[in-house]
């Protein structure tokens, strides 16, 4: 029996294997940490370059002043209007996308037969896969002229001065947030389980009653995190708002007038970095990092909220 000698390891071999295993393990752990901790590096470097701005110009003017004149002497960096622009566009987009998104998720999980669902899944994936710059291009070349003309058909000969405005960006952002909302809500609805539905049907409820009064409440936390993810997608999107929102740093008058151009945080970063002196680090350069930091903090908060909802739901389910 020649092979049997190899099956029994000497103490030295055992030690060697153990050391090798440990080495390999720590190598894996190191690589994993680098991958995972890169998000902290992002936070650190964005904050490092945002810090000079807050140190020199203070915090209050940045958040509460609407005077955005980075090219003036002295420059003014009041970003309130830009924050409002981001908020307005994001919330409108999500408000437009949530009702059809949740309805479509319900339809896909409970109403349509399996074969149709197999066809629709790729449709949702395609909507999600189309690059944002292509959506922006569509907004600029197809939707904007259409919007501009549509004023004529409305009663009273409504005048829309420009097709690139908050509404255009919101509609497109809504379409972009739709696949996220649909697929995450659908997963949540599916996870609600068969027993729940069958119990409801057995009590004589119609399908609509089952879905609205039984399944949806059971899946509400999943739907909520779908909405949060939709908000994050719309908030962080750059190209569409840069191309379609008009980029005017102003709060619309009245504030809900979506037909006026607005400017968002992401578009300001993308658009102004070319003018801001990248290497010497002017105030204009640092204020863009301050905006990046704000975006980062908002996305962290959304993430925390999402995780909190998920853990709470898990606890509730465990508690019966």
């Amino acid at each position: 029996m020649k092979g049997s000698e190899h099956l029994i390891l000497s103490a030295a071999e055992k030690l060697q294997r153990k050391i090798l295993g440990l080495l390999g393990r720590s190598l894996l752990f190191a690589v994993t940490s680098v991958a995972a901790l890169s998000v902290l590096a992002i936070l650190f470097f964005i904050a490092r370059d945002a810090w000079p701005f807050f140190r020199d110009k203070g915090v209050a003017a940045f958040f509460f002043s609407t005077a955005w004149y980075p090219a003036h002497q002295p420059p003014e960096f009041g970003a309130a209007a830009i924050f409002v622009g981001s908020l307005l566009v994001t919330l409108t987009a999500v408000a437009l996308a949530v009702p059809p998104g949740v309805l479509a998720a319900i339809c896909m999980s409970d109403i349509l037969p399996f074969s149709v669902r197999q066809v629709l899944k790729p449709v949702v994936e395609m909507l999600a896969a189309i690059p944002s710059v292509v959506y922006g291009f569509f907004a600029l070349t197809v939707l904007a002229p259409f919007l501009q003309d549509s004023g004529k058909w409305l009663p009273g000969g409504f005048e829309i001065s420009s097709g690139v405005n908050a509404l255009n960006a919101s509609v497109i952002l809504g379409v972009m947030a739709l696949p996220t909302i649909v697929s995450v809500s659908e997963d949540a609805l599916q996870a609600a389980g068969r027993e729940l539905r069958e119990g409801s049907y057995a009590l004589g409820a119609t399908r609509a009653e089952t879905l609205v009064k039984v399944v949806l409440p059971a899946a509400v936390s999943g739907v909520f995190s779908a909405v949060l993810l939709g908000i994050m997608r719309a908030m962080g999107e750059t190209m569409v708002v840069w191309m379609a929102s008009g980029n005017a740093a102003q709060i619309p008058k009245p504030w809900y007038n979506l037909l006026q151009p607005v400017r968002t945080l992401t578009a300001t970063i993308a658009g102004d970095m070319g003018e801001a002196d990248q290497m010497t680090g002017s105030a204009h350069y640092h204020v863009l990092f301050a905006m990046g930091l704000s975006l980062l903090v908002i996305s962290f908060l959304c993430n925390l909220a999402g995780e909190w909802i998920v853990t709470r739901q898990r606890k509730r389910l465990r508690g019966g």
């Binding site: 994993t32 940490s33 991958a35 995972a36 901790l37 890169s38 998000v39 902290l40 590096a41 992002i42 470097f45 964005i46 490092r48 370059d49 944002s132 993810l229 994050m232 908030m235 962080g236 999107e237 750059t238 992401t266 970063i269 993308a270 970095m273 990248q278 863009l288 990092f289 990046g292 975006l295 980062l296 996305s299 962290f300 959304c302 993430n303 995780e307």
Partner: peptide, 24 residues
């Protein structure tokens, strides 16, 4: 912690990656 770091990384807006690429 590492897991939620990965989740958070997935939520970082793409323009912030651009800023990070420039700064880092």
């Amino acid at each position: 912690f590492l897991r939620s770091c990965v989740n958070t990384l997935a939520g970082v807006p793409s323009i912030v990656f651009g800023l990070f690429g420039l700064a880092f």
